[in-house]
């Protein structure tokens, strides 16, 4: 995202500016009280103030990144606030919604439930590392084609999770709905639904998400 030298205003800029205004207002009206801005529970879960710092280096989307972080910083917050990769979303921040899903050494995880300092030397792939606007990952293209979203907030997590799901099926990892543990799992809609159950879509685009993943899965099978 280029911000220098022009007046391009992104949706994120507008949201951040709006948030700042509300925080400023509530600070004025509740002087001295603890301010919890419209970032919801961020006041409690995002590190603020002085905490012990720790150095950590990891590879993000193929590039080595060095950080010195408050030990409380989750991998999700490191990606968004320190590496400025805001494609990974913060939904519930408790591992219940899957919006923060990224690939850690190729395996999908909830980036909100792991500390950045625990990932020295690890390799992280976010939605930005899967494809570019001019060169989409095949799952990104399939989500566009099948309308696998409405608001789009869960989409980066859905797509990172789907990448992990297809790799897991290819590796022969069974699921709760696999009828027989001793044979290779099938690429059925039932399997995809079970395996994607850690990604919530409040808009309810599930049918189209299954269609998008099924199309890519069929191509690879």
């Amino acid at each position: 995202m280029s911000r220098s030298g022009n007046f391009e205003t992104t949706r994120r800029d507008v949201l951040v500016a709006g948030a700042m205004t509300v925080v400023a207002t509530s600070t004025t009206s509740k002087a001295g009280a603890q301010v919890r801005g419209p970032a919801g529970n961020a006041g409690k879960s995002s590190p603020v103030g002085d905490g012990p710092l720790s150095k950590v280096s990891m590879t993000i989307n193929g590039s080595r990144r060095d950080f010195e972080l408050d030990t409380r910083t989750t991998l999700l917050d490191a990606l968004r606030e320190h590496a400025h990769l805001t494609g990974t979303k913060k939904g519930c921040d408790h591992g219940q919604c899957g919006a923060c899903t990224v690939l850690l050494d190729g395996h999908r995880i909830n980036s909100c439930l792991t500390l950045a300092v625990m990932h020295e030397g690890d390799s992280v792939t976010t939605i930005e590392g899967l494809g570019r606007p001019d060169h989409l990952h095949e799952l990104q293209a399939a989500f566009v084609k099948h309308d696998g979203y409405q608001c789009g907030y869960c989409t980066s997590g859905q797509i990172c999770s789907a990448v992990g799901v297809l790799d897991e099926i290819r590796a022969g990892i069974p699921s709760h709905v696999s009828a027989d543990l001793t044979v290779a799992p099938q690429l059925s809609p039932e399997e995809l639904r079970e395996r994607m159950s850690g990604n919530i879509c409040r808009c309810g685009a599930y049918c189209n998400i299954v269609d998008a993943i099924s199309e890519v899965a069929g191509r690879k099978a």
């Binding site: 591992g95 899957g98 899903t101 850690l104 395996h107 709760h176």
Partner: peptide
């Protein structure tokens, strides 16, 4: 130990089980 495999797969989500 199929009962163990089945119990694990019945718990949490794919992302959580990976971690």
């Amino acid at each position: 130990y199929g009962v163990l495999s089945r119990a694990l797969l019945a718990g949490a989500s794919g992302q959580l089980r990976n971690r």
